[in-house]
Simulated scan of single mutants.
Amino acid sequence: MDQSTVVYGAVTIAVCGLASLYVALVIWSPPPIVTRPSETKYLSHASPKHAKPLPKLADPSTVDLTVVVPAYNETERLPIMLASTIDHLTSPALKNKHTFEVLIVDDGSSDGTSAAALKLAATYPKCDIRVVTLEQNLGKGGAVRHGMLFGGGERLLMVDADGASRFMDLELLWNAMDKLAPDNGAGVVVGSRAHLVKTEAVVKRSLVRNILMYGLHTILRIVGVGHIRDTQCGFKLFSRAAAQQIFPAQHLPTWIFDVELLLLAKELGIPVAEVPIEWHEVPGSKLNVVSASLQMLRDLLIVRANHLLGRWKAVPLKPKGA
């Protein structure tokens, strides 16, 4: 066998290998997230039977703040979280400071989360609490994305339904956003638990969860978001200008979606600030650590590969008047 034949064979194997990897990437990449007509409407205490249309992210804002709460089978933990949210936003110190709406996104729950959320909304009749029900379970990332795409806030906060984050720390994120993105520019402020790593709040977590945490940090440095010490805290504030660029480009519906959001912000040149917040672990997590770890590795590789190959792209906002 001459040298040219060997070279030709090696090139053929390499090309076939790369083609196989590309096909695998296409197959493993999640399909586009589909929004069904019923999911573009909401129920509320004021209209519990007749659904009303939600605003669109592309439209001008209608309130200062939208609080997006992804909820999957959260009838037990949602009442405490919602109480702390409303107590803070209606406190004397914040009276008339921010107009707001709370958008609870029921991610295809089977425990009556939507009905429970509407019942809770009735206990706060003066507050704009909206409930939208997804026809199928998408995953936390899909529920957050939906809430962001249909929120009316000039700023939009994602917050977990378990109440693990102290809601009053919103003001820390708000003040950081004022500095990061003045005049309603694009900006993202993430709540961070990094300062708690050696404290009781994290030390008391299970060994498996702490191993997962440290492993995740190592992988994140590899994929390009190592500059953010805590990517997974479910307490993040987006300016409307940032949300309009990031969330239409989001593909991952799974729990690691936060990393994709931060990668998109980096790609778009949107500034990101990280602010320490108080946090405590709340029982009742639905995360299976083993399966989530495997899914995490796969999804991070999928996100990075799709962005490197240009299959997934973020489109910057056009300047006004352009």
Rank of each mutant, 00 (worst) to 15 (best):
K266N: 05
D183V: 11
T85G: 00
L294V: 14
W312K: 02
A314N: 09
T199A: 10
I80S: 12
G310H: 06
Q3F: 14
L264K: 01
G321K: 04
T75Q: 03
E74W: 02
R166Y: 13
V159L: 08
G310P: 00
V282L: 04
G152W: 01
A10V: 13
G112I: 11
A115D: 11
H251F: 13
L18M: 15
A161K: 00
P182T: 14
H307M: 15
L18I: 15
S20G: 15
G321H: 08
I228P: 00
G141K: 04
L78H: 02
N137S: 13
G9C: 14
V68M: 05
L82W: 02
A194H: 11
D178F: 11
E200G: 04
V105I: 15
Q3T: 12
M158A: 05
S4P: 00
D230I: 01
A273G: 02
L173W: 07
D107N: 14
D87K: 10
K318I: 08
W312H: 09
K204T: 15
L237S: 06
E171G: 02
V67D: 03
V69I: 15
V34W: 14
E171M: 11
G215L: 13
G151S: 11
T199S: 14
Y214Q: 10
F235Q: 01
E274D: 01
V23F: 11
V290H: 07
D111F: 12
T113H: 03
A186W: 03
A176D: 05
V259C: 12
E267F: 01
G185C: 09
D64M: 09
L149F: 03
K204C: 12
A249D: 04
S91M: 07
G141F: 13
H98L: 15
G17F: 12
A322D: 07
L170D: 03
Y8N: 12
N210T: 07
A314S: 15
V159S: 05
V282T: 11
D111R: 03
L103G: 01
E171N: 11
L25K: 00
P316T: 06
N288I: 06
Q295W: 06
